[in-house]
Design a protein around this nucleic acid. Sequence first.
DNA 1: GCTGAAACCTGGCTTTA
DNA 2: TAAAGCCAGGTTTCAGC
Lengths: 162, 162
Amino acid sequence: MVDRLDRKILQILQEDATIPVAEIGRRIGLSTTPCWRRIQKLEEEGVITGRVALLDPKKINTRVTAFVAITTNQHNDEWLRRFAEVIREMPEVAEFYRMAGQVDYLLRVVVPDIEAYDAFYKRLIAKIDISDVSTTFAMEQIKYTTMLPLNYIALDKEKAPA
Amino acid sequence: MVDRLDRKILQILQEDATIPVAEIGRRIGLSTTPCWRRIQKLEEEGVITGRVALLDPKKINTRVTAFVAITTNQHNDEWLRRFAEVIREMPEVAEFYRMAGQVDYLLRVVVPDIEAYDAFYKRLIAKIDISDVSTTFAMEQIKYTTMLPLNYIALDKEKAPA
DNA sequence: GCTGAAACCTGGCTTTA
DNA sequence: TAAAGCCAGGTTTCAGC
């Protein structure tokens, strides 16, 4: 599926998607067209899911990140479906996981300040029945990246070099 | 700084950065050039920090997300500086927060499976002195977005419409 | 906000291993 | 025959006005 050259392309694109195809080709030792075709293929196959602009949270007035650990006694599919729907429509929720272990779900929520979190929290519990919620706040975001590690990809078989 | 039109631009670009400037202009009721100039300004001001390609974690063989809560007794700047440096160089760590409350730091780590997490964990504790680590695994990523909520932006004053 | 030049993307066709 | 390279036409970006 993905070979060494594809991986190099992905590495470049998930770091900076503004780099022209010709330049990417140059960096990996390929001319424009084959490089472009590889990118097309990676998009068709769904390896690349999209290209987005990233914003500075401070400039957007969302300085506070809260992690919300949720426990529930509702363990049926219908409840989860509804819960997921509610969460999907709340733009403050950046991430939402179903967890193993003590807590059932984990949210990462971005808001301007603690007051705004409180307002968010009230809106959340008004919309859905939750047994127990425990929130912890982040003081500082030391690292945040959308880049995934590419060293675990199962590489396509290639001809061995001479 | 940012007005209503800028906000619309940001909304579009953080959803899909492949849309041509002319099309963005059309959607917000602006011709190409002024729209382009606004985007330039948003980039210069650092509101837009970059454009990146997003990848499908499954296709990249990183199916497992682990949250790692770290407690330490080292509370000096030098230790944190070194810790941050170590983390920055580990591509499996997507996010890294300094927390308020019981746990000192929180990591979001992406790896192929539990075995790979174990290997990561050993590499981590070999590199840095940590008192206590508690890991919880996500079973499912129900929502993940890089989009920030734009409804909290302090909008620039505008002329009232006639 | 318009216009035009330069850069870039995109697909058909040719070449190479 | 599968993948790389060449080249031309159309689109997009971006600076002057």
